[in-house]
Structures are given as structure tokens and as C-alpha cells.
């Protein structure tokens, strides 16, 4: 049982796999870690950074 560390192609594919794993994890982790989704800017409506959901204060 061995890992082909002498093969540059192994390192290329390993780097791609790490990046892919980070991308998948990014969607699961809270904002701030690996640039999680919570930090993404979306074209949706927010009120002081939060989704509206309270009655109007007149």
C-alpha cells in the first residue's frame, strides 16, 4: 500500500482534490471560514443586514 509521492501528477490531482473539498466545505461552514456562503452578497432584500420579518413600527 503506497501513495505515489514521486509522481508530479499525484500532487496535481491532490491539489485539485483539496481545492474541490474546500469548495464543498465552503457551502457547509458558517461565514468567515473558507469564505462561507453567509458572507456572499446576494441581490436580495435585507433590512440592516437581516431579513425583514417584523411588523412596521409606525
Amino acid at each position: 500500500m503506497r501513495v505515489p509521492i514521486e509522481d508530479w501528477q499525484f500532487w496535481t490531482t491532490t491539489l485539485a482534490a483539496i481545492l474541490a473539498a474546500a469548495y464543498v466545505a465552503r457551502g457547509l461552514l458558517p461565514g468567515g471560514i473558507l469564505g462561507g456562503r453567509a458572507n456572499q452578497t446576494r441581490a436580495t432584500l435585507t433590512v440592516e443586514g437581516k431579513k425583514p420579518g417584523r411588523p412596521l413600527a409606525r
Partner: peptide, 21 residues
């Protein structure tokens, strides 16, 4: 007292922010 109406009220009152775009 529905989410859509609350959104509209907040936009009209200037309390809402449309991110991006």
C-alpha cells in the same frame, strides 16, 4: 402582516437595502 407587505413597507420607509446590482 405578510412577509411581502413587510418587505414593501421597509423599502418605502428606507429601512431596506437591496444588496448588489
Amino acid at each position: 402582516d405578510q412577509p411581502e407587505a413587510i418587505l414593501c413597507r421597509d423599502v418605502l420607509a428606507g429601512r431596506a437595502r437591496v444588496g448588489g446590482g
